[in-house]
């Protein structure tokens, strides 16, 4: 039995992470769940949050936006708008983005703009959470 699974995190701007890993924890729409090799085939939506990757006993964190997850026995493919590795997140920038998004929300906006601002807020919060978590 294979002891690793292939993880691909893919964004429109290119693949972010493609490695063989031991385990991955994902923010699914129905809650956080972990995937080990030989998982049942599964397709689910992903909500903004953090992906935790375990490779060679060490954890790597990613902040991620909404997306889709495809799980097969040997592979996990993640399709998302945004994924940033924790140590590459610039905390100041994420904080700034959060403030911008909140300021945008305070102004009077159309539904669609509110949705955009909300999504931006969720993304920057996810980045900040991962960053702070990573530093603890």
């Amino acid at each position: 039995m294979a002891s690793t699974l292939k993880l691909e995190i893919i964004t429109p701007e290119g693949p972010v992470y493609v490695e063989d890993v031991e385990m991955v924890t994902l923010p699914g729409i129905a809650g956080q769940f972990g995937v080990y090799p030989q998982h049942l085939p599964l397709m689910t939506q992903m909500v903004p949050g953090e992906i935790i990757v375990r490779k060679e006993g060490r954890d790597t964190f990613f902040a991620t936006g909404a997306g889709l997850i495809e799980v097969t026995a040997a592979r996990v493919s993640i399709l998302t708008d945004l994924a940033v590795q924790a140590d590459k997140i610039d905390e100041a920038k994420a904080e700034e983005a959060r403030q911008r998004a909140e300021a945008r929300l305070r102004e009077k906006l159309s539904d669609e703009e509110v949705a955009t601002a909300n999504a931006a807020l969720a993304r920057s919060l996810a980045q900040l959470n991962v960053k702070r978590h990573f530093h603890r």
Binding site: G28, I29, A30, L40, P41, L42, M43, T44, Q45, A66, L68, E70
Partner: peptide, 14 residues
């Protein structure tokens, strides 16, 4: 045979 969560329809919409 994939397990869809919540449903294939939702996956398609997304």
């Amino acid at each position: 045979d994939y397990l869809f969560e919540p449903s294939p329809q939702d996956t398609l919409s997304f």
